[in-house]
C-alpha cells in the first residue's frame, strides 16, 4: 500500500516539476522574443536614421533657405540616435523625427525641382519602405510584449517570475499621436 502511495506521489511530484519547468522556460522564451523583436525595431530604426543625412543634403541643394526645417530634422535625428533612451523615450524621439521628416518631405510640394530630383525621390521611397518596416517591427514587438505580459500575470507564471529574476514588465513601443493614422470605421 505504501509503495503505491509513494509511487503515485512521485509521479505527481514529477508532473508538477515538469509543469513548473515548462512554464518557467516559456517565460524565458517569451522574454527573449521581446528582446529579439526589439532588436528588429532597432535595425529598422538605424536603417531609417542612415537615410536621413542624404535626404537632408538632397533637400539643401534646392531649398537651402528652409534652414529651420532642415535643422529640425537633424536635431530630431540627433536626439533619436543619441543613445541611452528607454523604450518610451525612444518612441517619443522617433515620433518627433517622423513629424519633422513629414515637414521635410512636404517641401517637395513647394519646390518642383526638388520633387523632380531622382535621387531625392529614391530616398523618399526608401524612407517610406523603412517606415513600413518599422511599423511591422513595432507590431511584432508589441505582440511579443503582450504574450510575455499575459504569461507573467497568469498562474503559475506570476509565482515563477520572481524566482529566476530578470522577469518584469516591458514597455510597449507605441506610436505617438503624430504618426497614428486616423482609424477608418467600416460597417459590414
Amino acid at each position: 500500500m505504501g509503495v503505491i502511495v509513494g509511487g503515485i506521489s512521485a509521479v505527481l511530484i514529477a508532473v508538477l516539476a515538469w509543469w513548473l519547468v515548462r512554464t518557467y522556460n516559456r517565460l524565458v522564451r517569451l522574454r527573449n522574443q521581446t528582446q529579439a523583436s526589439w532588436a528588429q525595431i532597432d535595425v529598422q530604426l538605424k536603417r531609417r536614421h542612415e537615410l536621413i543625412p542624404n535626404l537632408v543634403e538632397g533637400a539643401r541643394g534646392y531649398a537651402a533657405h528652409e534652414r529651420a526645417t532642415l535643422e529640425a530634422v537633424v536635431a530630431a535625428r540627433g536626439v533619436a540616435t543619441g543613445g541611452g533612451l528607454g523604450i518610451v523615450d525612444q518612441a517619443a524621439a522617433e515620433d518627433a523625427l517622423t513629424a519633422s521628416l513629414g515637414r521635410l518631405l512636404a517641401l517637395g510640394e513647394n519646390y518642383p525641382q526638388l520633387k523632380a530630383d531622382r535621387h531625392f525621390a529614391t530616398l523618399q521611397e526608401e524612407l517610406t519602405t523603412a517606415e513600413d518596416r518599422i511599423a511591422y517591427a513595432r507590431q511584432f514587438y508589441n505582440s511579443a510584449v503582450q504574450s510575455y505580459h499575459t504569461a507573467l500575470e497568469s498562474f503559475p507564471g506570476n509565482l515563477l517570475a520572481g524566482l529566476g529574476g530578470a522577469h518584469g514588465r516591458k514597455e510597449y513601443f507605441e506610436a505617438g499621436a503624430v504618426v497614428q493614422d486616423a482609424v477608418q470605421v467600416r460597417f459590414a
Partner: peptide, 23 residues
C-alpha cells in the same frame, strides 16, 4: 521561425490581414 516565436500569430483570424498585411 520568426513567426512561430510570436505566440499570438498562430490563432489570428483571416480578418487580421487588415493589421498584419502580407505577414
Amino acid at each position: 521561425a520568426w513567426l512561430h516565436a510570436h505566440e499570438e500569430f498562430a490563432p489570428l483570424p483571416p480578418a487580421a490581414v487588415t493589421v498584419w498585411d502580407r505577414y
